[in-house]
Structures are given as C-alpha cells and as structure tokens.
Design a protein around this nucleic acid. Structure first.
Lengths: 270, 270
DNA sequence: GAATGCTATTCAATATACAGAATGAGAGAC
DNA sequence: GTCTCTCATTCTGTATATTGAATAGCATTC
C-alpha cells in the first residue's frame, strides 16, 4: 500500500483490472479503499483522477456501490463516502472468526495483569498483518483499533514471521528494505534477532519500531506450516522492565501455545 | 432482506444485476453478504446456486474478491469465507463517522448511570437501522454488536422514525405489516403510540419487541427533515421502573438534543 | 477397477459493460 | 446580465466480461 502523494493514477489497480475477469470488482474495491483513506467525502472527478479511471466508468461503479449501501451519496454536494454497510460485513466476519473469539479473553487477562496493550493479529504472508482483536488496560475504545494494518515484517511480529515462516533470505530482504522504523536495525542485526526469536519462541522489538516502546509477539498456528496469527504485547519500555518482563514473556508464550492447540494447529517442533 | 430458506435464487439480485451498469459489483456484494450470513465457509457451487449465478461467473467474482482480500480461499477444501479486509474498511468508516465518535462517550455515561445497554443507531429511511455504537453497563464485547441491522419500524426507534419522518400512512402500514414482534401491537395501537412519541419527543417500546424488555429511543437530526440517527436505551422492564425511568427519559432526550446541535442539525419544532 | 456422481475449472461465441466524446448543469468571474 | 470553467451525467460503438457447454479432477459407489 504505497501512499499516493497528491494525484498518482493507481498502477497496481491498472494491473489488477487487466488480469481479472471481473474488473469492476477491482475498481469497486479500490474506490472503497480510497474513500476509506480519505478524510472527507469525495466527488466523482477526484475519485476517477486519483484511481486513473474514466469518469463515466467510475460513476457506474459508484452507483452500484451506493445501491449496495457500501457507499453513501449526498445529492446536494454530489460527494461520496463509505456507508455503514461495511460495518455489517465486518460484524459478520467477527462473529465467525474463531481466533478473535478465543483470543479476546486471553488478551483481556494479559492486558489487565501486566498493564499493557494487547493485540491479536492475523498474518497475511509476507505482505501485512491486520489487528483483529484488541484489549487495552485503561480506557476502552476497542472498535476503532480493530482492523489496523501493518507491514508484515515490522516490529516484534515481523521477527516471528521471519523466524517461523521459512522464507528465503532474498524475499525477506526485499520486504525488509522499505520498512519504516523510528530506530531502524540493519538487516544483519535484524537477522540475528530473528534467529534469537526462533530460539526463544517469541519476538522482541525494543524501541526499534517506536522509540521507548517495547513490543513482544508470540506466534499462533492454525495449521502446520507458517504461523497464521500472533499475540502481541505493547508497553512503554520502562514499565515493562519494572512489571516483570520474564513473567509476561512466559504468559504470552503459554497463551499462544494454548490458542494454537485450541485452533487445532501444531507448534513447529514438538 | 428476506431470509432465504434453503436454496432460492436471489430475485432482488437478478434485478440489481440487470439495472446496473456494473453488475459484477452487485454480484460481489451479494456474495459478501451470503458469506457473511453463512455459518461455515462455502464452496463455489453452493454460492452460485444460492444466488442464482452461473458457476463460471461466480468463480471470477470470487477470484476478484480473493485478490482484493475481501474473501479468503482455502485451496485444500476449495471453500470461500469472508476475509479480514472487510474489517479494515469498517475501521476506516468508524474513524470518520462523526455520530459514532460523538455518541460513544454519551452512551458510556448513560449506560453506566442507569445500568442499561445503550445503542447509537443510524437510520436508513423506512428500510432499516444499523447499530453504529454500543455501550453495555456490564461486560464489554463491543465490536461484535456494532453493525447489527434491524427493520426500521421495529421497537422504540421505529416509533420515532414514524413520528418524525412524515411518511404517508400507506407506506408506514406496508412496512409495519411484515414486522415480527414477540407481542405485536395492532396498527391502530401502534399509530397511537407514534402520536404519543411525536408529543413526547422520544419513543417507548414496553415489551412489544421482546417481552419483559423496555426500549427507549430519542431521535437525532443531522440535517433538517427526517432524523438520521437515534440514541436507544435497552433494559429489563422491572429494572428500568426501579431505576428511575423519568430521569433516564430526560437524560436521553437531552443527550439526543445535544448531539443534534453538535452535528449541525435542527430539531423539528424550535 | 470401472462407473457415477459430484465438484472446480477452462473455452469459445456473443450480449453488454466500458471508454471517450458530447451534453447538461452549476458556480464563479467580470 | 453573459461568459467560462469545471463538474456530473448521458450517449454510442466496440473490446471484453459473461455465459453455458465442454473438460478435468476426485471422491464414493457398485
């Protein structure tokens, strides 16, 4: 997901449209994502220009999306925005997502016990991870955080993905290079940390991703092979050291193993 | 949204596909909704049969949705299900939904003060309402409830929509008839309650929708005209009577009026 | 082990969704 | 007031998405 500065016709979209036998769907998804990213409702031209679509085609896409209640249309301003229909889909997804269900009480318990923010994330290969469950020790604006996306190899979860995913180094490096850290490790340093992660069973990011913030991640398997999810603990570095890192590490690892078993998965080495 | 018993090719979909200039999008939306409704992942044939689609067309739709990460595909079982991409869209919608943002603290306060479950809902004409924010006095599985849909005229919110929407009686009755209540009022009784709602400024449902459960709803306006949202309080009838119904009514009405002003709307009678 | 269901998938013909130009419809400049 | 610029929208021919049949895979049954 490259940030599009001002107006750069979407190149990836052009390819997706060409290859697909249902290009309207790629266009529709691109429109939805653009509307999601935008701070304010957008007009037809703005959308068409940003995505490199012909205005008339774009209009038909938008009309179809409005008819499906995925996009709202204000007849006065002629502006389009996301509609609540997307919420309904998300709710349905959450309802039958086993991992989110099973992880939630675990996250709540760990967040409360150790005073950290806990995430349950789903892994999408080497591409990215998505937050699917959240528990915060203080305050509770749950739903706004669920659904966040991050590059796969960033922070502690990234070290887990690299450690247990069995990817060739060349692929890892290609994905590693463009990452943005506040305090970036070198690829060599990072590979050592990945090796350490493989040994310990969980990953640590000590202020690399965000200065002063320590992140722990333990992988969860749904099938044998590559991990499908992870449990993540996020805390201020100082707070974590005081509050017993070792205990949190043990608890995190144990919870991840329990979840793996509940999901019918298999840890890599018995 | 008619419940499709077993296998009834979707009639509404057929019409939507025909009228639209981008039928693939209607098909895609129908597939997403079907996958959302389904308890388990579905195979290609099952989806095509249920929606009345040609299997090959359905395959292309599914492939496009998989490419957009809105649908997941298990190569072993050849089954399709909703993917986490829908979550990301929902999160983006929530982030820039003014009503949900403004309503959340209000709902939290009312839920805690009166020991009731509070909802913020968005109104879609005479068709339906969608829950966009939730606060429960005990326990907190927020996200799973957000996104729920109900028929527009059901329960207390329905009386508000009828009272302040200025719809012709014939339309109201057509929408009223098919509603399912546990203890259904007659249309005449209901119209009296609607009149009462117009007088009081908020709607009450005392055990009609669900026996033993009292629901209060106060409308919120985003523009002049028809109400766009509502605040809803749900409690056991007995608990509500003890805990000071009048106070809750006043607080609900006051909060709805405050929200209306914050959203830049206008109450009907100055 | 062949046969019979069921799947998912490919393929070739054609109905139609789409691109691009032409037309309306407003908003602002002067 | 008129002109102009930009926006949304309609119109029309053609590349192509969709269709329905044909193929291929994979269990289960006989």
């Amino acid at each position: 997901m490259r940030d599009s500065l001002t107006s750069s016709p979407d190149h990836q979209l052009a390819k997706a449209v060409k290859d697909s036998k249902a290009p309207a769907i790629s266009r529709a998804a691109a429109v939805l994502r653009l509307l999601g990213k935008s701070e304010a409702p957008l007009g037809l031209q703005a959308i068409a220009r940003e995505l490199g679509l012909v205005p008339s085609t774009c209009l038909y896409v938008l009309r179809a999306l409005v008819a499906e209640e995925l996009v709202s249309f204000d007849p006065d301003t002629k502006r389009y925005a996301l509609e609540a229909g997307v919420l309904t889909l998300a709710r349905q997804w959450l309802r039958r997502n086993e991992f989110a269900d099973l992880a939630q009480p675990v996250l709540d318990r760990l967040a409360q016990t150790f005073g950290v923010t806990m995430l349950g994330v789903q892994i999408f290969g080497l591409d990215r991870i998505v937050t699917v469950a959240v528990s915060q020790s203080a305050g509770f604006q749950l739903s706004v955080q669920v659904g966040s996306r991050f590059p796969a190899l960033i922070s502690a979860t990234g070290r887990c993905i690299a450690a247990f995913g069995d990817y060739p180094d060349s692929q890892l490096e290609a994905r590693f290079r463009p990452l943005r850290w506040e305090d970036p490790p070198s690829f060599a340093e990072w590979q050592q940390q990945v090796a350490e992660t493989r040994r310990q069973g969980f990953g640590i990011d000590e202020g690399n991703y965000i200065s002063g913030v320590t992140v722990l991640a333990a992988p969860v398997w749904k099938q044998r092979g590559r991990p499908s999810h992870a449990l993540v603990a996020i805390g201020l570095g100082s707070a974590l050291k005081r509050n017993g890192m070792p205990e949190l590490q043990d608890a995190l690892l144990a919870s991840a193993q329990t979840l793996t078993i509940q999901l019918g998965g298999k840890m890599p080495r018995p």
